[in-house]
Write a protein that binds this DNA or RNA. Structure first.
Length: 634
RNA sequence: GCUGCUGUAGCUCAGUGGUAGAGCGCGUCCUUGGUAAGGACGAGGUCAUGGGUUCAAGCCCCAUCAGCAGCUCCA
């Protein structure tokens, strides 16, 4: 008999050789039915795995996230079988689970098209209906390599696998695939699925390798779960800043300037509101603001290291036969400003901000609305300080960053620390000092972070602040980069207490990152329902009929005098249509005015997303909304 | 940059080798109204661009440009 410990602490005795699946039956028929895999002594295994003595065993069901993932992975195998049966020339590569689904990379010369999805799904349904058991077989690494000799993808997978035991899974009596497992007991346990998309993906993520086809699918325990997921995707798409930006006339793009955004009047109102706020916060945190040229002599970029490390991303031009570059970063220009006069340690830390317009040549395939463009405005700053001041300054930047993010209602962001890349300037020792300074500051603020080895800027390590868009794609906002190299390259100096000249430390930092991207993120974050302080049109007055147009104008003038961004709908439409239109334009406040309101000097206030209305005197309305703007209420 | 898909009215999209379509929006007129879209009429097109096939191309073929999804890369 073998002793088994269950997650609730209870102990159970089972006969030697009992499998995890049989154990589930022993615990209860309900559990046995729901069981799809097990965790024995911390390791996820098939239900067919025998249990040895003194094992901790947990039966995994679809209620566990591991269970869902196992089902999705099994679904990937079902899809692989379906694809192989339709296109026998298919060579399978790798089929992992991802958030909300799975994909399978395949090597097949004939492109799979969205119009093929239906017949793949039909084939998959056949396989699921046949309820074929997943049968695991194991062999040694050498045997596996022998078995798959000639299959470069699978032998490569074996080489990357841990341990000496290599496993295969057979679905029924036909399709077999190399796989670590575990899997569902049989294909019948696969829930509701859908093929989502197909796209190219390099083998091993390496652009020099063959482009494979990556078929994405999703899989959920029930049809309702799948439907809910698809509905969620639809809802998310409605928040897409590219659609909302067009619908609400905020910005546009044109073939004449791919990757360069045209900001429209309404978009600029949001932009300027953010700039005003940004200036106020930076003033509070002791920053000065400068502006440097967009075009600078090529020699400067040789000196800064950009020529050697960033040239592929830069645009160049020529003035009177002399080479110039369009700046991709603001730091060299900032260094020139620093050098215009002497500096003392007494001035430090010197926090110099710049809303700098930079141009970077991005590959054509990576452009993405306002999130990835070729021209953007960075809310940049360079802090010049002594080595002793680094940690405190970084802490200050983190506090400023959090204060700004909070003002926009962002709570869900994560932080990454990136270390020395292959292409870099500066000694290893300098990199260690800089990296540790960033780590210490994060530790001091008790901030959790992820490390990205080799992802730093070429001049120093960095801390990045990331946020997710409506479709859960992650985007970088702010960044803090420590730089010991650029000040030396530009011979920046300050006079220290002991009257000797020393090289300052430079901290590059951006909080919102790029104004363009940040506005895109805000559009998705709010679903374009901007808080009052950001809304392009804060209030619209809707006249009941032409007879009330004059009163509407009186109200409008009063609100304009109070600095509110106020529009007026005097069109030849009924009030219902005016409300519907204002609603579709996501107006925060609608003021309906008719003869009644004109008589009493009031407005009937209708708040976005609220069916209730109330009538108030104009001055009361003004007081309330002005307070809401001052508070930046979200 | 790579793989695949897409490109038709301001927007969203139908369109089967043989006369260019709808809804919304826009303009004019009617309507003068009370809380999420009143009615009539009208204007609006180099079917992305350039080649090719064909008696005939929005539709088929090739190239280019742009967009979308993903990969790689990045704020």
């Amino acid at each position: 008999m073998a002793k088994v410990a269950l997650p609730d602490g209870s102990k159970l005795e089972v006969a030697d050789g009992t499998t995890a699946g049989q154990l589930a039956e022993q615990i209860g028929t309900g559990l046995a039915k729901a069981a799809i895999a097990a965790r024995i002594n911390g390791e996820l295994v098939d239900l067919s795995t025998p249990i040895n003595d003194n094992a901790d065993v947990q039966i995994i069901t679809l209620k566990d996230s591991e269970g869902i993932n196992i089902m999705r992975h099994s679904c990937a195998h079902v899809m692989a079988e379906a694809i192989c049966s339709i296109w026998p020339a298919t060579k399978l590569v790798y089929g992992p689970t991802v958030e909300d689904g799975f994909y399978y990379d395949i090597d097949l010369d004939e492109p799979i098209r969205p119009s093929d999805f239906q017949r793949i799904e039909e084939k998959m349904r056949e396989i699921v209906k046949a309820d074929k058991p997943f049968i695991r077989t194991e062999m040694s690494r050498a045997e596996a390599l022998d078995k798959l000799a000639g299959n470069k993808y699978k032998t490569d997978n074996i080489k990357h696998a841990d341990g000496d035991v290599i496993s295969f899974y057979l679905q029924g009596d036909g399709f077999e695939d190399l796989c670590r497992g575990p899997h569902l007991p049989s294909t019948g346990k696969v829930g509701s699925f859908k093929i989502m998309s197909v796209a190219g993906a390099y083998w091993h993520g390496d652009p020099t390798q063959k482009m494979l086809q990556r078929v994405y699918g999703t899989c959920w325990p029930t049809q309702k779960d799948l439907d809910d997921y698809l509905t969620r995707l639809e809802e998310a798409k409605k928040r897409d800043h590219r659609l909302l930006g067009k619908q609400l006339d905020l910005f546009s793009f044109n073939e004449a300037a791919p990757g360069f955004a045209f900001m429209h009047a309404k978009g600029m109102i949001i932009w300027n509101a953010i700039v005003d706020f940004w200036r106020a916060v930076h003033n509070k945190y002791g920053y000065q603001e400068i502006k440097t040229p967009i075009i600078l002599n090529e020699q400067l970029w040789h000196k800064s290291g950009h020529w050697d490390n960033y040239k592929e991303n830069m645009y160049f031009t020529n003035i009177d036969g002399v080479g110039y570059a369009i700046k991709p970063m603001n730091c060299p220009g900032g260094c020139l400003v620093y050098k215009t006069r002497q500096h003392s340690y007494r001035e430090f830390p010197m926090r110099i901000a710049e809303l700098g317009l930079v141009h970077r040549h991005e590959a054509s395939g990576v452009m993405h609305g306002l999130f990835r463009v070729r021209q953007f405005t960075q809310d940049d700053a360079h802090i010049y300080c002594t080595p002793e001041q680094i940690e405190q300054e970084i802490i200050g930047v983190i506090e400023l960053t959090f204060e700004m993010y909070r003002a926009f209602g962002f709570e869900d962001f994560h932080i990454e620390l990136s270390t020395k890349p292959e292409k870099h300037i500066g000694s290893d020792q300098i990199w260690d000092v800089a990296t540790n300074a960033l780590k210490d500051a994060l530790k001091h603020k008790a901030i959790e972070y992820k490390i990205n080895e080799g992802d730093g800027a070429f001049y120093g390590p960095k801390i990045d602040f990331h946020i997710k868009d409506c479709l859960r794609r992650s985007w970088q906002l702010g960044t803090i980069q420590l730089d010991f190299s650029m000040p030396a390259r530009f011979n920046l100096v300050y006079t220290d207490r002991d009257n000797t000249e020393k090289t300052p430390v430079m901290i590059h930092r951006a909080v919102l990152g790029s104004f363009e991207r940040f506005i895109g993120i805000l559009i998705e974050h709010y679903g374009a329902n901007f808080p009052l302080w950001l809304a392009p049109e804060q209030v619209r007055i809707l006249a009941i009929s032409e007879k009330s147009n004059d009163y509407a104008k009186v109200v409008r003038d009063k609100l304009k005098d109070a600095q509110l961004r106020c529009g007026m709908d005097l069109s030849d439409e009924k009030i219902n249509a005016k409300i519907a239109k204002a609603h579709s334009e996501k107006l925060p406040y609608m003021l309906v005015v008719g003869p009644k309101e004109a008589r009493s000097n009031t407005v009937n206030v209708r708040i976005r997303g609220d069916k209730e209305t109330r009538t108030v005197v104009i001055d009361d309305f003004l007081r309330t909304v002005k307070q809401e703007i001052v508070e930046k209420k979200i």
